[in-house]
Design a protein around this nucleic acid. Structure first.
Lengths: 155, 155
DNA sequence: TTCGGATAGATAACATGTTATCTATTGTAG
DNA sequence: CTACAATAGATAACATGTTATCTATCCGAA
């Protein structure tokens, strides 16, 4: 009696529950539900989720270099390079070389980029607060803490 | 004394913590750390994360239709259409029309698709078990439960 | 000092994500 | 029965994700 049944055309109900409950898909689904709240707001300003993430980080850390921005935004360098090119040509941010290390570049928001952030931030905050209210403020911070603990466990 | 300070070139440290701790980025980072454990295994078989997710669901639910597969895998229909086209031409799955509703199609694994699943599944399970061990089995199920609770709160 | 390794960023190539729209079919109110 | 809305899936167009590779610069050991 092997514990591995033969592969057949029948549904494998033994693993169905496992997949539906697996951590990676749970993280993905949850993120979808959360981001669904933000998407209409982002769409009003023609921003993608990633572009907004990037703008926010540069607003908080003007003069950040590309590598640190990539890490902070969870956007890999090839994607980031493309995005910076477009956002720069759209006039939302500037890139400048660093004296002392000609490989690096530092990034800051233009006036237009700062204005965009200022226009979008309040509602973005409001949406986040609403999510916090619906889920529960303490549950929210507990969840975030657990996620951080998991990351530390696996690193 | 406005609570909204003027926008300057100085780092806005008041919101830095918030972004780093925000739920969407926490979910993203955590998913990255988890998936990093699976990627080498997937790469050995030339599978992307999404392709493997799809294969697993079809293995568990042969005859599933495209809409249900899209929902189960968290892959939007336009992406799914492309993937099914390629995976079918690679001989890993089949699509067939449904008598009674000519719009729908049902999907099943070919022998080759089943063999691929059978080859990959054990190590995939082992990686998952290892993650469970490092984080803690009970913490893991608690986290998954909390994620589900959050999804229900927001729906 | 110099040469080889390391680092910062860009680019190529292909896969997937996202929104809008399209076709074909099905269900339904009138 | 018919016109119309709804549904299943496909396609277009563009943005991002992912791996591999490339260039330029920096750094450290011989």
């Amino acid at each position: 009696m092997s514990r591995k049944p033969p592969i057949t055309d029948e549904p494998d109900t033994s693993q169905l529950r496992r997949f539906e409950e697996a951590l990676p898909i749970a993280l993905l689904r949850t993120r979808e539900v959360v981001m669904a709240r933000f998407r209409p707001h982002l769409a009003e300003y023609g921003m993608t989720e990633q572009q907004w993430r990037l703008i926010r980080v540069v607003q908080q850390r003007p003069g950040i270099d590309a590598t640190a921005l990539s890490e902070a935004c969870c956007i890999l360098m090839p994607s980031l390079s493309r995005m910076l090119k477009y956002l720069e040509s759209d006039g939302l941010l500037t890139r400048s070389k660093v004296k002392g290390d000609m490989r690096r570049q530092v990034i800051s928001l233009t006036r237009q980029g700062k204005d965009l952030f200022a226009k979008m931030a309040p509602k973005s905050e409001a949406i986040y607060a609403q999510i916090e209210t619906e889920f529960g403020r303490s549950d929210m911070s507990e969840l975030i803490a657990q996620l951080q603990t998991l990351r530390r466990s696996l690193k």
